[in-house]
Write a protein that binds this DNA or RNA. Structure first.
Lengths: 192, 192
DNA sequence: CGAGAAAGTCATCGATTGTTGACTTTCGAG
DNA sequence: CTCGAAAGTCAACAATCGATGACTTTCTCG
């Protein structure tokens, strides 16, 4: 009721802010549907802007997707977590969704998973997953068969994330009590 | 060089056979890309038939997808496997891809996973996953938190399947030796 | 043989997609 | 105040999608 005559508040013109809003909208939509299933028009509609603008800012849809995939923390996926801390850390990625950081990372995993089978995005997705997650986790774990154990950790994580989006109630975080414990137990077995 | 003048062997007219060929082609393509990423034209091209025919046989793309999802063994996903046999059985689904039966089931899981985030197919996919896999596995496992443990087993399975399609070498079946053992160990921890 | 049903093809529709160039609006610096 | 660059909008493009109805080809049965 604040502006009864101008329903479309023209929002202040700020290129950096709109660009960031586009990135966040794209990230949220890419985490729910696959690459070619997300339309530039839907992204721009969520931001409240013209579809042509997102193409002008990022060059192409593929470039936008690539930039979405660079987020978060452009460098490494893990923030100084030790080999012993891996189970608890990755279990927390699934159970405690309140933290901004963990939510962004599970969202990133969902984006990777959703577009893993997209003809246009699969190659980008595969490379980034290897370089940004699989290899670092394997390096942290160390020992024999490190890459296999890292793959299993990642499998639990991605499988859990996708099942939660499919409405599997047992994986809803709720109070994060027994679920977290069970996940830690499972991930401990994964890292041997 | 058998028929140098007629490059397009007109293939004998058999409605049931072409229908089956369409189903198999659709199944193979839905296992690699998501629902709206698979075109009726590509399916029909793999069969060697006109795109209009697949629409005439199944009514619509959604009906075709629903019928693909009914396969295999329309009833249950598990063939008389006991609670103790669950880890070895599901590990075998990932490691021994040579068997026709296991290959079809992992393919089915991939189809479910690929289209889990498709606006048109997600609802169909969620229901069938719950009714055909999650609930039966939970019933077999029994005990407290059966649904949670079944979800974890399924998470390992789907995560492993999707990572393998992303070129994670550690999960390639190769000789199925240490991978199978490690998977059994992990799934044993999942079922408690 | 020949008629009729079945199997398959062809052309086409409306809708949607990413992308582009020309246009209009806003706003801060001179 | 004004002018020009930045920010954003508009209209339209080529391509692709699922779907439909009319058409042609093939096969079978009497």
């Amino acid at each position: 009721m604040l502006s009864p005559v101008c329903p479309a508040a023209p929002r202040p013109r700020n290129a950096a802010a709109t660009r960031q809003a586009m990135l966040e909208a794209a990230r949220r939509q890419f985490a729910r549907e696959s690459y070619e299933n997300v339309g530039l028009r839907e992204i721009s509609r969520e931001v409240g802007v013209d579809p042509a603008l997102v193409c002008r800012y990022f060059g192409s849809k593929e470039a936008l997707f690539r930039e979405v995939l660079r987020h978060p923390d452009d460098g490494n996926f893990l923030a100084g977590v030790s080999a012993e801390g891996v189970p608890d850390y990755f279990a927390g990625l699934l159970t405690q969704a309140e933290t901004h950081d963990t939510a962004a990372k599970t969202e990133w995993l969902l984006i990777v998973l959703r577009s893993a089978g997209s003809s246009h995005a699969s190659q980008i997705v595969r490379e980034t997953l290897h370089e940004r997650v699989l290899r670092p986790v394997a390096r942290i774990l160390g020992g024999e068969g490190a890459e296999l154990r890292a793959s299993l950790v990642l499998a639990v994580l991605m499988g859990g994330a996708v099942l939660r989006t499919m409405g599997v109630e047992s994986l809803e975080c709720e109070d994060s009590g027994p679920l977290h414990d069970k996940l830690v137990e499972l991930l401990t077995a994964a890292v041997r």
